[in-house]
Amino acid sequence: MIDGGPRPVAPFSHAVEGGGWVMLTGQMPTDPAAPDGPLPEGIDAQTRRVMENLEVVLDGLGLALSDVAQCRCYLTAFERDYAAFNEVYQGYFPAERRPARTTIGVTALAVGALVEIDCLARRPD
């Protein structure tokens, strides 16, 4: 668990590491400073909050988004939100160094979120 990281919404760790690979659990758009507060409104704000939460967890491990090799993204309103999600998401990675990614439409997410993202990072050699 990462000090100051988002409060888990289920029984899991923020991340697990093995062999230089770090698996980050899916992050929700909750505010670590106000975990019981309302979620941000809309896919843009929720995507930013999720990405910020990933950065908090990565930073707590001495890593950054530049160490991310792969992301899995989950959207509850795929057709409606996919384009807007991509607009926000792409701003967190340089075009020449984007991680591999899969985006999946799902029927629901914990805490009523519109988006959740998990990722796999690699510790630099």
Rank of each mutant, 00 (worst) to 15 (best):
V16Y: 11
V88W: 01
G18H: 15
R49M: 04
T47S: 03
D31E: 13
L114A: 03
V50C: 03
E17R: 10
M28W: 04
L58V: 05
Y82W: 12
M51A: 04
D3H: 15
L39S: 09
Y89F: 14
G18P: 04
D44M: 06
L63H: 05
E41R: 10
D125G: 13
I43Q: 05
L120C: 12
T25Y: 07
F12Q: 11
D36L: 09
R48N: 05
Q27L: 11
G19W: 07
M23H: 15
R97P: 05
R80W: 11
G18I: 04
P32E: 11
C119R: 04
V115L: 06
V57L: 07
R72K: 14
F78V: 08
P35G: 02
F85Y: 12
C73H: 07
D67Y: 05
F85I: 06
G19V: 10
P32W: 00
V57S: 04
A33D: 14
P35Q: 14
I2Y: 05
G105V: 05
E87V: 08
R7W: 13
T102N: 12
R123H: 11
T76D: 07
C71S: 08
G60S: 13
T103V: 15
I2P: 05
A10L: 14
F93N: 01
Y74N: 10
L58T: 08
P8V: 03
G91M: 01
D118W: 07
I43D: 00
V68N: 05
D59E: 14
G19M: 10
V56E: 05
G26S: 11
V50E: 03
G60I: 09
Q46V: 10
T76F: 04
F85K: 07
H14G: 06
L75M: 11
E17L: 12
L63A: 08
A113G: 09
G4A: 09
D81Q: 03
D67H: 06
E87Y: 08
P40Q: 07
P40R: 00
I104N: 11
V115H: 03
P99H: 11
T107K: 14
F85T: 02
F93I: 02
T76G: 07
G105A: 11
Q70L: 15
R80E: 15
V57W: 08
L61P: 02
S13W: 04
Q46T: 00
A64N: 10
E55D: 14
D59V: 07
V57F: 07
A69Q: 03
R49A: 08
A121N: 08
R7S: 12
P32L: 04
A110T: 15
D118H: 00
L39F: 07
